[in-house]
């Protein structure tokens, strides 16, 4: 990642993301991987900081 991102770079990045289609062949695999990511997002959402005394 560069420190100074040009407007054109952002436009290209956005265009690239918008252009990414999920080919039919991949849909099942992508869904399985998205479900895995969702599992990790849930673990993270359930996290709470350890008590302060454990961090001394």
């Amino acid at each position: 990642m560069t420190d100074s991102v040009e407007a054109d770079d952002i436009a290209q990045a956005v265009a690239a993301f918008l252009a990414v289609e999920i080919p039919p062949l991949c849909q099942e695999g992508v869904r399985a991987n998205l479900e895995l990511l969702l599992t990790h997002a849930r673990i993270l959402a359930a996290w709470s900081a350890p008590p302060a005394e454990n961090r001394r």
Partner: peptide
């Protein structure tokens, strides 16, 4: 996308979402 190793491709595609 279809030129990628299938096992890697599906993980990467999921990451874009």
């Amino acid at each position: 996308a279809l030129d990628y190793d299938p096992a890697v491709r599906d993980r990467l595609l999921a990451g874009t979402r």
